[in-house]
């Protein structure tokens, strides 16, 4: 049972290790856009305003890449748990 506690903490550490920076990133973008609009609305990249880039486009590929990586790691941990505890 102590091993389950260790596993739970590892799983939680992995989820928070990815989740906290990710949610901080999303909320950070919004704080930037809403608290300092002048810093983003005046900037354009290829003719498209930066605040649109950030909120309407860029966040999607970033999320896809990050979470494909995360699922790979989470499933690898799952396999490890099965190998070490599966027979018990």
């Amino acid at each position: 049972m102590d091993r389950i506690e260790t596993i739970r903490k590892r799983q939680l550490g992995m989820a928070l290790g990815v989740g906290i920076p990710y949610f901080a990133f999303v909320i950070g973008i919004f704080l930037l856009v809403y608290l300092a609009p002048a810093a983003v609305t005046g900037v354009s990249i290829v003719g498209f305003p930066l605040h649109y880039w950030l909120v309407a486009i860029a966040i999607y590929p970033v999320t896809w890449a990050l979470f494909i990586w995360y699922v790979g790691r989470a499933n690898a941990l799952e396999d490890e748990i099965e190998t070490t505890l599966g027979g018990e």
């Binding site: 989820a15 990815v18 989740g19 990710y22 949610f23 999303v26 919004f30 909120v55 309407a56 966040i59 999607y60 999320t63 979470f67 995360y70 699922v71």
Partner: peptide
């Protein structure tokens, strides 16, 4: 903000 919020919602579920 609605599009983004609805999308990001799945992350908490996944994690």
């Amino acid at each position: 903000i609605y599009a983004l919020g609805f999308f990001v919602g799945y992350i908490a579920l996944l994690l």
